[in-house]
C-alpha cells in the first residue's frame, strides 16, 4: 500500500471508530437527529442526480442501462 492510501485508510478507520463511539455513548435521540440529516442528504443527492440525468434522452438511456445492469441481473448475495 502506498503512503497516501495508508493515510486515507487510517483516517477512514479513525472516523468510523469516532462515530461508532459517539453512537455508543450518546442517547438515541441525540445521534439519531444528526444521523437522519446525513442519511436524508445522501438519499436526496442520489435522487437529484438521477432526476437531472433523466432530463435528456441520453440520460434516460443511461438510467435504463444502469437499471438493467443492477436490477435485472439474477443474483442473490445472501
Amino acid at each position: 500500500m502506498n503512503k497516501d492510501k495508508e493515510i486515507r485508510a487510517f483516517e477512514r478507520n479513525w472516523m468510523i471508530e469516532k462515530w461508532a463511539k459517539h453512537v455508543k455513548e450518546k442517547p438515541l435521540e441525540v445521534w439519531k437527529k444528526e444521523h437522519t440529516l446525513f442519511i436524508n442528504d445522501q438519499l436526496e443527492t442520489a435522487q437529484r442526480f438521477y432526476q437531472e440525468l433523466a432530463k435528456t434522452e441520453e440520460g434516460r438511456i443511461k438510467i435504463e442501462l444502469i437499471k438493467k445492469e443492477r436490477f435485472m441481473t439474477k443474483t442473490r448475495e445472501i
Binding site: L28, K32, H35, T36, I39, N40, E44
Partner: peptide, 14 residues
Amino acid sequence: MVLEMEHDKSKLDC
C-alpha cells in the same frame, strides 16, 4: 424506546 416523532426518522426509515 420507539421513535415517535416523525422528524427523527430518516426518509429511508419511512
